[in-house]
Design a protein around this nucleic acid. Structure first.
Ligand SMILES: [Mn+2]
Ligand SMILES: [Mn+2]
Ligand SMILES: [Zn+2]
Ligand SMILES: [Zn+2]
Lengths: 138, 138
DNA sequence: CCATTAAATGCACTTCTGTTGCACCATCTA
DNA sequence: TAGATGGTGCAACAGAAGTGCATTTAATGG
């Protein structure tokens, strides 16, 4: 059993060939990926399978979904000990308007926000748009 | 010249009949609206016209676009003196998972966020998901 | 090992949002 | 009043998301 298989197994996800490929693909990238990104990465990929795989991954806390303002859902692997299905990992995300890449800034936590009376917060999504360090010509 | 016409004129937007209707519709609601919401509100509405009207409104600082995590763009009128086309009005938004409504919390400003070296922030989008005060049964 | 069963995948198709091109119409200006 | 500019209507398309169903694959128990 490889490391990836163990990871999936730990999260109660059957480590099928396709799932392992998807996991490895996401692990190889340092940016969040869209469903279409994965689809384009594998010639033999079936969109529905990828779609449902991502859903499963998300439900089991393997990936988290990111809404970066492009109206296209992005996904990124959760950090080793993030447990975002229980107590969500409130880091912020950055979307670069130049290279169109979205990254997790896991070190940068979202500060506590207070809401008006009667509002109950369940999740927080903070996205900053701008120029990333790769596109920034210093 | 009515108040609405003056408002549009001040922002260099020709106050056509359709635009006035759209503006009034948005002003009558206390939630952000999607393109489809406006389309459904008027039988005679042409989707393209609404689409381009919202684009124009946004460019001229009459409305601001909100990305609430549903992957459907929402729009809301800017506050009287917000000038968000120059220096964006960094209030937070709330999306209720029960009634599916998105509201501007204009009183609640987004706190200063610091970024890693090399990253340049141009815009910030902070959305909180949960239960709104109307859906909260106290 | 085989039969049974559940889970995963592949295929076809639909819906919805966003977007563009182009023709036509309204409005402004010289 | 003619021309220019800008707004609108109509048609069509692209892309993402999502569903139903048949088929394949994998796990399980005898
Ligand atoms: Mn992330
Ligand atoms: Mn707002
Ligand atoms: Zn970049
Ligand atoms: Zn609500």
């Amino acid at each position: 059993m490889t490391e990836v298989e163990k990871t999936l197994d730990n999260k109660s996800v059957r480590p099928t060939a396709m799932r392992i490929l998807i996991y490895k693909f996401m692990a190889s990238k340092n940016t969040a990926v869209a469903l279409t990104d994965i689809e384009n990465a594998f010639d033999k990929a079936e969109r529905t399978t990828l779609y449902r795989t991502l859903k499963t991954f998300e439900e089991k806390g393997i990936v988290h979904q990111i809404d970066d303002g492009t109206n296209i859902s992005k996904f990124a692997l959760c950090e080793p000990g993030c447990n975002c299905e229980i107590d969500q990992d409130l880091h912020l995300h950055f979307h670069c308007g130049q290279c169109d890449k979205t990254v997790c800034l896991t070190e940068h936590k979202i500060p506590q926000i207070n809401l008006p009376q009667g509002y109950i917060a369940e999740d927080v999504n903070l996205v900053i748009k701008g120029i990333c360090d790769s596109c920034n010509d210093h």
